[in-house]
Write a protein that binds this DNA or RNA. Structure first.
Lengths: 121, 121
DNA sequence: TTAATTGTATTACTACAAGTAGTACAATAT
DNA sequence: ATATTGTACTACTTGTAGTAATACAATTAA
């Protein structure tokens, strides 16, 4: 269900995050489905519970899952519509990004723009 | 001519970079104008020559200036057109970015997109 | 041709942040 | 009550960013 690459430079919590996003977008996990408890998944993957927790925390911040102490973590009920609209917006964004890069936009400049649009994050 | 804020978190080389960009966009420095030599500027600003060099290197990579050993560093001859077109593209990009953010795009996701479009930088 | 001026490359030191782990805490369920 | 769950706090380790010290290479000017 979850696959990790420990030799990768990508942080484990980020890989976990992407795992869940992928499972949802592929329809393998559906709204209200229960995710494995932090400790369970951590043990399975031989990883610290806090690392799993970090992934879950991010997933919740981004609206993918809902977590509650004692209850557990679940795929958000209204995940489908969200991701669909967002996907379209991302595609438009990437199209504009390509144009800008062709005209000499650098990564540094893009990061600066990102900082301006995400205040104090 | 050049102003630095040493108490700022922003790296000095980045501040220098922005100084030059601003001087150009304000028309204070024009195409083919000579920039102060690395060592001279470094001494003036009480900074290591390498720090100035790093700023110049970035400016050259982004097409703002041209550097040559023994000659010096100069504002690029064709800076005006470049920056104009680019500015338009950046505005479109930011418009799309705002839409995507409104639909739930996160900073993390944006950075991931950035990584995808700037391979191995 | 020689000395001065210029940008570049290499290396190393320091500080800070990211990533992960250890542990204790708090809320819910059974 | 006790077990299960997510969360908060702290600390350790590692890596990267920023700057500096130094040596190098190319051009200019005398």
């Amino acid at each position: 269900m979850f696959t990790l690459d420990f030799s990768s430079r990508k942080p484990i919590y980020e890989q976990l995050y992407n795992n869940v996003v992928k499972l949802v977008s592929l329809g393998i996990m559906k709204p209200n489905d229960k995710l494995p408890p932090v400790r369970t998944l951590a043990t399975e993957l031989s990883v610290n519970p806090n690392t799993v927790s970090k992934a879950y925390k991010l997933l919740e911040a981004d609206g993918y899952i809902c977590s509650a102490v004692g209850k557990g973590s679940f795929i958000s009920p209204d995940i489908s519509e969200i991701t669909a609209e967002k996907q379209v917006a991302i595609e438009s964004l990437e199209a504009e990004l390509k144009k800008a890069i062709a005209l000499g936009l650098t990564k540094g400049e893009l990061l600066e723009i990102a900082d301006r649009h995400f205040p104090k994050e």
